[in-house]
């Protein structure tokens, strides 16, 4: 009888699910990482539906059979202490289920924390994505390009996003390409994404960060390699370099539209160190924490500015007084328009 509530909701959900999974962004992946996660989610839903079915069947059975009714008036329920074998069963089976899901978790976590298997042999394209107030800055150190609130990536290419923040903790998320990761002021986190198809995907900050949070979205556009090269050429021809003053002004703003520049802020405002630096303090250890050993090599290959680990983690004040911009976002002071 009191099954109505949950059943009603389940029925409702099925009705709503029928129009197709395409509106369920997370289950409509367009890249290897998102696909791994979507498969994991669907697998776990199926296992959990099995668990629910067992509990619900048992539940309905006991309620129907043992409810008080005229025919069992005067029935005195027995005294039952329990049953070792039955109790062992409902300890053992859940343990098996949890063990199975643990294996799935470790495997898939490791898969999405590394470059996707299909793109293992590529040199990833490094893009620094940093957040300030309620906007995103994307720096392409190799191309010497910086954009605000949109990011273009070549399709079928491993992309390594290096995330950090000029303020509150934000979470970089492009649901159709992969899971999210925090961008923080005192360390760099790494997110590996790739797109399998050409297309425009919504990216957003998923972690509440104050007043402008709801509007902190960007477009992630995956394009063919040729289009990507054309775009770079076009930017080089039409845009102008990002000066320190310009960048300072950008940081201070709450929201801006799209912007494009022909140089990055990394040269005058280097990012903080990565997680490895944090954990080991010397930054030379294998980067176990990111599950990726190549990652260290790339740092040498890319001319991108090396994180200056001693300035950021120890937080020593920067000695150069006349430098207008702080050397790392750690020392950046916020700019509230009010």
């Amino acid at each position: 009888m009191n099954k109505k509530g949950p059943l009603y909701a389940l029925f409702l959900s099925l009705v709503l699910l029928l129009p197709g999974c395409s509106s369920l962004t997370v289950l409509n992946p367009k890249g290897p990482a998102a696909r791994t996660l979507s498969d994991t989610i669907i697998l776990s839903i199926l296992v959990m539906l099995g668990v629910l079915a067992v509990v619900y069947i048992l539940y309905i059975w006991v309620l129907v059979k043992y409810r008080a009714k005229k025919s069992n008036e005067g029935y005195v329920p027995p005294h039952e202490e329990g049953n070792v074998w039955l109790e062992a069963t409902w300890i053992a089976i859940p343990i098996l289920i949890v063990a199975f899901l643990s294996v799935v978790t470790v495997k898939t976590t490791s898969a999405v924390e590394n470059v996707a298997a299909d793109y293992k042999d590529q040199k990833p394209l490094v893009i620094y994505a940093s957040s300030s107030n309620w906007k995103w800055h994307f720096s392409y150190p190799e191309e010497g390009i910086e954009t605000v609130n949109y990011v273009n990536i070549p399709v079928h290419r491993a992309v390594e996003f290096r995330l950090y923040s000029f303020g509150t903790i934000t979470s970089f998320w492009v649901p159709q390409l992969g899971g999210q990761k925090y961008a923080m002021s005192d360390m760099i986190t790494t997110l590996h994404l790739s797109a399998d198809t050409v297309g425009s995907f919504i990216g957003k900050n998923a972690n509440f960060s104050g007043k402008g949070f709801a509007h902190m979205e960007f477009e992630a556009l995956s394009m063919t390699d040729k289009d990507y090269q054309d775009w770079i050429k076009e930017v080089k021809e039409t845009a102008s370099p990002l000066t320190e003053d310009e960048f300072k002004g950008l940081l201070a703003m709450e929201h801006v539209g799209r912007k494009t520049y022909t140089s990055t802020h990394l040269s005058f405002s280097p990012p903080p160190g990565d997680h490895g630096d944090h954990m080991s303090n010397d930054g030379k250890d294998t980067d176990i924490d990111n599950g990726n050993t190549d990652h260290q090599e790339h740092k040498d290959i890319h001319p991108s500015p090396e994180p200056s680990s001693e300035t950021e983690f120890d937080g020593e004040p920067h000695p150069e007084v006349d430098q207008p911009l702080p050397s790392s976002p750690v020392e950046e002071h916020t700019h509230h328009s009010d």
Partner: peptide, 27 residues
């Protein structure tokens, strides 16, 4: 009513507990 409803909460908890999948559920 608690038993069936809480079980939904419990199984979705297990789904959220899977770190990889949580990258998509988090927040």
């Amino acid at each position: 009513a608690f038993i069936p409803i809480f079980t939904i909460g419990g199984v979705t908890g297990v789904m959220l507990a899977m770190a990889s999948a949580d990258y998509q559920y988090h927040n």
